[in-house]
Design a binder for these strands. Structure first.
Lengths: 245, 245
DNA sequence: TTGCGATAGTTAACGGCGTTCACCTTAATG
DNA sequence: CATTAAGGTGAACGCCGTTAACTATCGCAA
């Protein structure tokens, strides 16, 4: 409540200088360039001093990952808020924002969405905590899906089929975000894995053997994905049963 | 042509012993456990000896990655050959085989389909070579898609839309596998990124915050994906225009 | 004001890593 | 048989994370 003491100010300043240094190393040289000695060197310090701020390198990287989750989430929330009230339009802009951030920050994206870094396992596992940055991130994407189901039936396998295949297997999601209609949960997970596949393959370079301009493929997939999400308005041949007009 | 000399036999034996050791370390401790010193230790050798067989650790890991590509490809080819002649059925079994291998060999999957390992960049980039294990791998999945288009129209955005969005951006694919109808190329890439997203998220642990039993989600997505690929037989509401019945 | 304890930094060291170099042994070859 | 190349060793260099012992300084209470 009271004003921070001088000591506290110095401490938080050093703390963010450490994180800034770590991020700079991450961006320029990838995760394996992030070392306590290099961070300390850049700060004009010695490596053991950092142990006054983080118990280990892994903890430092974990903290950095949390910050990145929040940064990406805010980036996406901004895009959503600029998109107006229509959930489909919101989703479009959010997916684009996701890709834009990932392509513009490949090292950061890799850290939080790539292979679990050895010591980051506990960080990934601790996602059961709803306050976890990863869980907060997921909630942002879930929002428009919940909204979507108010106005229109979602496509995909029929409800009884979904129940047969998925019932009881989505408990972590239910625990975190409350009980959801199974169609909503499935539509969300389906879209999320598709978005992840597209973006991760591009950022990791697993698409370059086939595609020149990954953005073109992304936009094409995005159209297909969102057309499925909006069964009323029949943009193309993908729309189900209730034929337009 | 002639029988290998004694020296050659010893050399190839040592070479595969090195690779076996590397793989064992990869499986038990992840990529960061693979070190020249550890491999040599397990063989009763010293680390510099390995430089008679590989110019660097990165080269060794690159060779291992190539072997893994081939192993996975053969695993998937076996599944395809056991699935009979129907391309949709082939694709189903191939996707399942892909996931099975990935879940059963997470460290290996991570090596070839995760973040590019620092020194593996040149390996990834050299995929322009059609003899590259990665390119051969892609060709296996492409096969059934080409086959599919003979019997049925593929779903997805209409051709003129695909041309508008993708024309000229798929040249690497065309260079490698010959000119393909744009619907085939798109259907293939779409399915491939979806499969990748599902499998990679599961293996990397990015799904555990939402899903108990990733296989259930996988099977659900697989049904949805393949139903789209088979517009004639209308399993669910996803089938386009030409309404069944 | 003095003294004391927590805080933030240092240096030195341990063991691990990739890699290079000089050296040695052994196997194949003319 | 002499030579040459291949395969392997040991020592060393410069990285790395981490620990331990030590020191200076800052802020607060007697």
């Amino acid at each position: 409540m009271s004003a921070p003491t001088r000591r506290e100010r110095l401490r938080t300043a050093t703390l963010s200088e450490i994180k800034d240094g770590a991020r700079r190393l991450l961006v320029t040289g990838g995760i394996e360039a992030v070392s306590l000695r290099a961070i300390a060197r850049d700060m004009g310090m010695t490596a053991p001093a950092i142990y006054r701020y983080f118990p280990s390198l892994e903890a430092l990287v974990g903290g950095l990952a949390g910050d990145l989750y929040d940064e990406l989430r805010q980036h996406i929330e901004t895009a959503r808020d600029a998109a107006g009230p229509e959930p489909t339009e919101q989703l479009t802009q959010m997916c684009r924002a996701m890709r834009r951030w990932a392509v513009g920050h490949p090292a950061e994206f890799t850290l939080i969405f790539g292979n679990p870094v050895p010591g980051l396992a506990e960080f990934t596992d601790s996602c059961v905590d709803p306050d976890h940055p990863g869980a907060r991130f997921g909630a942002v994407f879930l929002g428009p899906f919940v909204e979507l189901t108010r106005s229109s039936r979602l496509p995909g396998p029929p409800t009884h089929e979904l129940r047969r295949l998925l019932d009881g297997h989505l408990t972590p999601l239910a625990v975190k975000h409350g009980e959801l209609p199974i169609e909503v949960a499935y539509a969300f997970l389906s879209a999320w894995t598709r978005l992840y596949g597209l973006v991760a393959m591009e950022v990791f370079g697993h698409l370059s053997w086939a595609v020149d301009e990954p953005e073109a493929l992304f936009e094409t997939e995005l159209v297909a994905l969102l057309t499925q999400m909006r069964p009323d308005d029949a943009g193309d041949g993908l729309t189900p049963g209730a034929a337009r007009h």
